[in-house]
C-alpha cells in the first residue's frame, strides 16, 4: 500500500509539473490557419526559421477557412491566414482585422479517377469541366464545410450554370470534411474533387487519381494574412503578431515560402511584394 501511495505522489508531481510548463512561456502567438497550408507541411518548413530569428513561437490552429474566420472573430487568435478573398475583406471591413496582405498563391486543380469517366481532360475552362461531370453524373466529392476551397468550388459551379445541391446525395457528395479526408473519400469513391495544388502534391494517398484540369486563371488561389484588431479584442498580441506578419511578407519569409519543395515541386508562390507594389 505504501508503495502505491509513493507511486501516486510521483505521478501527481509529474502531472502538476506538466501543467506548469504548459503555461510558463508567454512569447507566442496563435495563428488561425486554413488546413491546406498546414497539411502541405509548409509551416514545419518555414516557422522554425522565424522562431530562431525572433524567439517567437507560432502556435498553428488549422481548421477550415470558415471556422478560422469564426474563431478569429471570437478573438481566439492573433493572426489569420486563409484563402477566401471576399470573406477576408468582409472580416477587415467589420473591424475584426487590421489589414489584409497577400502572402502567396498556388492554384486549384481538379483531380479525377483513372480513365476520366466524365471526359474532363482536354477541357480548358473549369465551367466546361464541371458541366461534363454534372451531365455524366459521375461522383463529385465536395468539401461541404464552408472552407475557402469549398467556396471556390461553389463559385465554379455557379459559372458552369449548375446547382449541384439539387443532386446532393446522388452524384454530388458533400463530405463535410477537411481537404485530406475529402481526397481520401474521392479516391475510394472514384469521384472528382477540387483541391489546392499544395495539398495534392504532398498528399500520400493519391491512389490512381490524377490531375484532370489545371492552369486556368479561374483556378487561381490566393492566400492572405490578417492581423486581428486590438480594437475588437484588446488582449491580442499585437506586437508579436506584427513581427510575424512583417517577417512573412518580408524577404526572409517570402524566400522561405518559395524554397519549400515537395518531391521536387514548388507548392506555394510568394507574391507579397506584387500586392504591395
Amino acid at each position: 500500500m505504501r508503495m502505491i501511495s509513493v507511486l501516486a505522489s510521483l505521478a501527481m508531481l509529474w502531472l502538476a509539473q506538466g501543467m506548469q510548463n504548459a503555461n510558463a512561456d508567454d512569447n507566442f502567438i496563435v495563428l488561425q490557419s486554413t488546413t491546406s497550408t498546414k497539411n502541405s507541411g509548409l509551416y514545419e518548413h518555414i516557422l522554425p526559421n522565424f522562431t530562431e530569428q525572433t524567439g517567437i513561437e507560432v502556435r498553428v490552429v488549422a481548421v477550415g477557412t470558415g471556422q478560422a474566420l469564426q474563431n478569429a472573430r471570437n478573438g481566439d487568435g492573433d493572426v489569420l491566414l486563409v484563402h477566401s478573398k471576399t470573406d477576408e475583406e468582409a472580416f477587415v471591413a467589420e473591424g475584426y482585422g487590421v489589414k489584409r496582405l497577400d502572402v502567396m498563391y498556388n492554384d486549384f486543380v481538379l483531380i479525377g479517377p483513372e480513365g476520366d469517366p466524365a471526359k474532363v481532360a482536354g477541357q480548358t475552362s473549369p465551367a466546361e469541366a464541371l458541366g461534363r461531370i454534372a451531365k455524366a453524373g459521375v461522383p463529385f466529392a465536395s468539401r461541404g464545410d464552408n472552407s475557402g476551397t469549398h467556396k471556390k468550388e461553389l463559385l465554379l459551379w455557379h459559372s458552369a450554370g449548375v446547382d449541384p445541391k439539387e443532386h446532393s446525395g446522388q452524384w454530388y457528395r458533400e463530405m463535410g470534411s477537411g481537404m485530406g479526408p475529402t481526397i481520401n473519400a474521392a479516391v475510394e469513391m472514384g469521384a472528382y474533387t477540387l483541391t489546392d495544388r499544395g495539398t495534392w502534391i504532398s498528399f500520400k494517398n493519391k491512389g490512381r487519381h490524377r490531375i484532370v484540369l489545371e492552369g486556368d486563371t479561374g483556378l487561381f488561389n490566393q492566400y492572405a494574412v490578417i492581423r486581428i484588431s486590438p480594437e475588437k479584442h484588446p488582449h491580442v498580441r499585437t506586437k508579436l503578431a506584427q513581427t510575424f506578419i512583417d517577417w512573412l511578407v518580408g524577404p526572409d519569409g517570402q524566400a522561405a515560402i518559395g524554397a519549400y519543395r515537395m518531391d521536387g515541386k514548388q507548392l506555394f508562390f510568394p507574391n507579397a511584394s506584387d500586392a504591395r507594389s
Binding site: N39, G180, P181, N184, K204
Partner: peptide, 11 residues
C-alpha cells in the same frame, strides 16, 4: 487525424 488528412494512412 492530421496524418489521415495528409493522406498518410499507413503512418
Amino acid at each position: 487525424a492530421l496524418e489521415t488528412s495528409k493522406g498518410d494512412l499507413a503512418f
